[in-house]
C-alpha cells in the first residue's frame, strides 16, 4: 500500500512537474528566440542566427529608410496615450458611481461596460467602420482613439472597482462625520487609496491599445496605421527582418515597463487577485 502510494506520488511529481516545465519553456522560448534572431547578421530568420550585428536595428532607427515605421509608432503612442487618458477619467468616475451601488441596474451597467472584453474585437472593428463612415467621418487618429477607448476602458474600470471594493467604508464615514465635504473626501481619502488600482488599470489599457489589431485594422488608412498593422503588413508581404528589430525593441520596452509597474503598484499581484 505504502509503496503504491509513493509510486503514485512520484508519478504525480514527474508528470505535473514535467508538463509545467514544458509550459514555462513554451511561454518563454519564442520570445527569447525572436530576440536572438533580431541580432542576426544574415538576411533571413535562420536559427541559430548567422553572426551577431546591430544591422537590423540600425536600419530600423534610420529616419529615412524606416519613416513609415516611425510614423506608425508615433500614431500608436498617440492613440494609446489619448484613449488611456480619456478612459481613466470616464472609468474612474463610473467606478466611483457604481462600485458601492447595490441596485440591480448598477450591476447590469457594470457588466455591460465589461462586454467589450468578450465581444469578438473584429466585429466591433467592422461596426465602428460602418458607423463612422455612415456618419461621414474620414479615417483619422481621433476615430481610432474613440474605438480604442471602448475596448481598453474595461481594464481601468475593473481594477478601479476592485480597489474601491477593498476600501474600508469606515474611512469615508469618518471623513464625512468629521465634516469633510464629499469632494474633499474624494480628493484626500478615496483617490489616494485607489490610485494604485487606477494606475494598474491605466497601464493595462495603454498596453492593450498599443497591441490592438481588430479596431485599428478597420479604422486606419495608410497615413494613420498603427505599429501592429504596419508589422502585419511587413510580415504578410516580404518577410522583412526589421520586424525582428521592432519586436526586439517592443520586448525590451515591455520588460522595462513591467519592472517599473511591479515596483510602483505591484502589478502582478493586482492581476492575480
Amino acid at each position: 500500500m505504502g509503496r503504491r502510494q509513493s509510486f503514485l506520488d512520484l508519478s504525480y511529481a514527474l508528470v505535473i512537474g514535467g508538463i509545467a516545465l514544458f509550459a514555462v519553456l513554451i511561454i518563454v522560448s519564442p520570445v527569447i528566440i525572436a530576440l536572438m534572431t533580431s541580432f542576426t547578421k544574415g538576411l533571413s530568420l535562420k536559427f541559430p542566427p548567422t553572426g551577431f550585428s546591430f544591422g537590423w536595428y540600425e536600419q530600423l532607427f534610420d529616419a529615412t529608410k524606416s519613416r513609415q515605421i516611425h510614423r506608425a509608432a508615433e500614431n500608436s503612442l498617440q492613440v494609446a496615450a489619448m484613449s488611456t487618458l480619456i478612459g481613466v477619467v470616464l472609468a474612474t468616475l463610473a467606478a466611483l458611481g457604481l462600485a458601492r451601488n447595490r441596485y440591480r441596474s448598477a450591476r447590469i451597467a457594470d457588466n455591460l461596460f465589461m462586454s467589450p472584453l468578450v465581444l469578438p474585437g473584429i466585429a466591433f472593428g467592422l461596426a465602428a467602420l460602418v458607423y463612422f463612415s455612415t456618419l461621414g467621418f474620414r479615417p483619422s487618429l481621433n476615430l481610432m482613439i474613440a474605438g480604442h477607448l471602448m475596448v481598453t476602458m474595461p481594464f481601468i474600470l475593473r481594477t478601479t472597482t476592485a480597489s474601491l471594493s477593498q476600501l474600508d467604508p469606515a474611512l469615508l464615514d469618518s471623513s464625512q462625520s468629521l465634516g469633510a465635504s464629499w469632494f474633499y473626501t474624494l480628493r484626500r481619502v478615496t483617490l489616494p487609496l485607489i490610485f494604485p488600482g487606477i494606475a494598474a488599470g491605466a497601464f493595462l489599457a495603454f498596453m492593450a491599445s498599443i497591441d490592438n489589431v481588430p479596431v485599428s485594422l478597420f479604422l486606419s488608412n495608410a497615413r494613420t496605421d498603427t505599429l501592429p498593422i504596419r508589422m502585419w503588413g511587413m510580415m504578410e508581404s516580404t518577410l522583412d527582418v526589421r520586424v525582428a528589430a521592432v519586436s526586439g525593441v517592443l520586448i525590451g520596452a515591455a520588460f522595462i515597463l513591467m519592472l517599473i509597474m511591479e515596483w510602483t503598484v505591484g502589478l502582478t499581484r493586482r492581476m492575480r487577485d
Binding site: V31, L227, P228, M231, M235, A244, S247, L250
Partner: peptide, 8 residues
C-alpha cells in the same frame, strides 16, 4: 504585442 508573439 500579439504581433510580436506571432512573429516569434
Amino acid at each position: 504585442s500579439v504581433v510580436v508573439r506571432t512573429f516569434a
